[in-house]
Design a protein around this nucleic acid. Structure first.
Lengths: 343, 343
DNA sequence: GCACATGCGCGAATCGTTTCGCCTCCACTG
DNA sequence: CAGTGGAGGCGAAACGATTCGCGCATGTGC
C-alpha cells in the first residue's frame, strides 16, 4: 500500500505540501497536476487511522439501537444516515438486541473506536453509566438520544410526544363511546412506555372516567386495564388474550408499539375478533398492516424520518462545537390515522 | 486523555512492558499489580487508532446491506454480529438504501476505515468494481457475500437455494391442481431473483406445463406470467393488480420476497380476493403475516439466522488467514410452510 | 530600484501504539 | 561455584499522517 511519502517521492514535492493540498489547501497549478498524477499512478489513499491519530477526529458517528429487525428503527437510521452523510460523516450502526450488557459494550467500543459522536436509543443503561461513557475521553463525547430518554441523564434528545399520542388515541376511543378501555404498554423503565401510560391515564381522567380502572371479577380479583408487555410480539399476543379472558373485558384496546400490535392483531384473528368492529382498537407504528387487515386499523404513526433527521442535525451542531443553548429536547408530534368503522 | 506513557510514568515501568502486558504477555506479579493500579487510577484506555496504525488490524467488520427496514436483513445481521462478537470482533452496519452510488461509497469508506473484513449483500456493484475494492489495500480484503452473488466475482458466499425454494413453492401449487401460475420476481440482475425465476420455470417444465407461458388476450397481446418487480411493496401491489386485470388471470401466484408479498396481500385484500381460497398463493419471508391473515398463507421461510452465522464463520476463517479451499459457496435450504386451504 | 507584503513550499516534530533485538537477572545443574 | 538457559524488562524505531514556523520567491507601490 502506498503512502503519502511515495506520493512525495513520485511528485518531487514535500510531505507538507501534499498533505496541505489533499486537505483543501492551495498549491501552484503545476504542483497540483503533479500531485494528482502521482496519486492516480500509485493508487494512493489516505490512511484514516493515521489521520485520526493525528487529528483526533474520525468523521464517523456511532448509532446504537435496541434492534434492527423493526422497521421503526430502520427508518430512523435511514434518515439519520442521510443527514450525517451530507455533512461528510459516515454512520456505523450497532444493535444491542435488547441485551443490557451488549448495550454497554457497544457504547464502550464505539467510544474507543473514536467515533466523533453517538446517537443512542437507550434502554437499560443508567444515567451514571452514560455519564461515565460520555466523559471517558478527555472532552465530552457529543451524544443525542432518540426515541427514549434516561431520567437523570442531561442530554440532547429527539423524542415523540408520547403522552399526547396515547391521549389522542384513547380520546378517540372515548368519543366512539367506549368507557372500559385497556392498554398494553411497554416496560415502564423505558421513558417512552411510561409516557404513553400517562397519556392514557390523563385522557380517562379528563373525561371523568375512573382511572384506577379495572373491575373485580366474581372471585373478587382486580382486573387490571393497564397491562405491561415487553414491546415484543409475544407480549401483545399474550396480553390481548388475557384481556379477552377477563370476566369483564375492555370494550376497546390501545396497543403501543409495532411488535405488540402485530401480536395483538394475530391473537384477535385467532379468536375471530374483528378489531374496530367487535372491539375498539388503536395500534402503533404498523402502518403497512392497517392496509392489509379488514376493516382498516386505527394506527398511531410516528415521524421516524423526521426524528432521524433532527437527531442528525443536532448531533452535527454539537460535533462542530456550535454553542447551543443547554440540552435540547425536541418533541415530535405523532399522527393518528383514524379509521372509523362503518357497517 | 491519558496515554500509555502516563501509565509508564505512574508505574515506573517501560512502555514496552506495559504494552506487552496489555496485550496478554507475561509480566512479574508485582508489576502486574502496578500496571493495573496505574490503569485504574488514570482511567487509561488504549487508543485504537494508534494501535491500528501500528498493527494494521482494527478488529472490526463492515456489514453492508441494501436496507435496514426489512426484518430479513435485521435477522441476518443479528446472527452475524453475535458470531463475530464471540471471536472478539465488532461489526459496523451500513445500509445503502438501494442506492447504487451509496453502495459503492459505503464499501470504499469501510475499506478506508480499515475494517478487517466485509460482509456484503450486493446489488448494483459490478465484479470489476468489487475486485478493485477488494484489492485497494495491499493485501486482499476478506469478504463474504450474503444472500446474493455477483456473476464473475469469485468470492465466498452464503446464499439460499433459491432455485429449489421456488421450485417447491410452484410444485405445491401444481399439486393443488393449478396450471396457470404467475410469479412476481425481483430485478433479474440480482442473482437471487434470477434463480427464483429459474426454479419457477423448471417446475413448470418438469410437470409438462408449457413454460413460455402467458396466453394472448382478445387484443392478441401476450399476457406474461412472469412479472418483474423491484422487491418493494409497490411492485407487489402493482403486479398483483396487473395479474388480476388480465383477461385470463393466473389461478395461482408466487411472490418472492417480503415487501412484494406485503404488497400483494394488500392488493388482494382491497380486491376482496381471498388468498389460498380464491387463488392459490405462496409468499416469501413474511412469516408473522401468515399468522395474521385468514386463511393462513403458504410462505417460504429463509434461514436468516443460519445465514448470518455461516457468513460470520467463513469470514472469521478468512480473516485469521486459515487456508480454505477455494471460495466457498454455501447454499442453505429454505423451508416451505405449506398451509392447505380447507373449507 | 528598494522595501515590504503575500503566497507557497519545506523540515521536523508529533500523535499513541507495537515490536525487535538486546540486556539483565535469577535459578538450576553438574 | 561457574556456566547456562529462560523469563522478563527496556530502548528505540517504526506505523502514516498533520501542522507549526520559517524562508524563499514573486509581485506591488513608491
Amino acid at each position: 500500500m502506498s503512502t503519502i511519502k511515495d506520493v512525495s517521492k513520485h511528485s518531487g514535492l514535500s510531505l507538507a505540501t501534499i498533505s496541505k493540498y489533499l486537505n483543501g489547501g492551495n498549491v501552484r497549478d503545476e504542483n497540483r497536476q503533479r500531485i494528482d498524477e502521482a496519486v492516480e499512478a500509485l493508487g494512493y489513499r489516505v490512511n484514516r487511522n493515521a489521520r485520526s491519530l493525528k487529528t483526533n477526529r474520525t468523521m464517523t458517528v456511532g448509532v446504537v439501537m435496541p434492534t434492527l429487525s423493526v422497521p421503526f428503527f430502520g427508518s430512523v437510521i435511514s434518515a439519520l444516515d442521510q443527514t450525517l452523510r451530507e455533512a461528510g460523516y459516515t454512520s456505523f450502526v450497532c444493535s444491542y438486541d435488547f441485551d443490557r450488557n451488549l448495550e454497554l459494550e457497544k457504547l464502550r467500543v464505539l467510544c474507543n473506536n473514536n467515533v466523533d459522536g453517538i446517537i443512542l436509543a437507550a434502554q437499560y443503561v443508567s444515567a451514571k453509566e452514560l455519564n461515565e461513557i460520555r466523559n471517558a475521553r478527555g472532552s465530552e463525547m457529543p451524544m443525542v438520544l432518540v426515541d427514549r430518554t434516561i431520567p437523570g441523564f442531561v442530554c440532547d434528545s429527539i423524542v415523540i410526544d408520547n403522552l399526547n399520542a396515547t391521549y389522542g388515541a384513547v380520546e378517540q376511543l372515548i368519543n366512539a363511546g367506549h368507557r372500559h378501555i385497556g392498554i398494553i404498554v411497554g416496560p415502564l423503565d423505558i421513558s417512552t412506555a411510561n409516557e404513553r401510560m400517562v397519556g392514557y391515564r390523563r385522557a380517562l381522567q379528563d373525561y371523568g372516567i375512573h382511572v384506577e380502572t379495572g373491575s373485580r371479577n366474581s372471585a373478587g380479583q382486580h382486573e387490571e386495564l393497564i397491562q405491561i408487555g415487553r414491546y415484543d410480539f409475544e407480549s401483545g399476543y399474550r396480553e390481548f388474550n388475557n384481556f379477552m379472558d377477563m370476566e369483564n373485558p375492555p370494550t376497546a384496546l390501545c396497543v403501543t408499539n409495532y411488535d405488540m400490535t402485530m401480536g395483538a392483531v394475530t391473537a384477535a384473528h385467532e379468536r375471530n375478533i374483528i378489531l374496530g368492529k367487535d372491539i375498539g382498537f388503536v395500534g402503533f407504528d404498523a402502518v403497512d398492516l392497517c392496509r392489509i387487515v379488514s376493516p382498516p386499523l386505527s394506527i398511531v404513526e410516528q415521524p421516524t424520518h423526521l426524528m432521524g433527521q433532527k437527531a442528525g442535525e443536532v448531533l452535527l451542531k454539537r460535533m462542530t462545537g456550535e454553542t447551543l443553548p443547554h440540552p435540547q429536547v425536541i418533541r415530535l408530534k405523532s399522527h393518528l390515522h383514524n379509521r372509523i368503522y362503518k357497517e
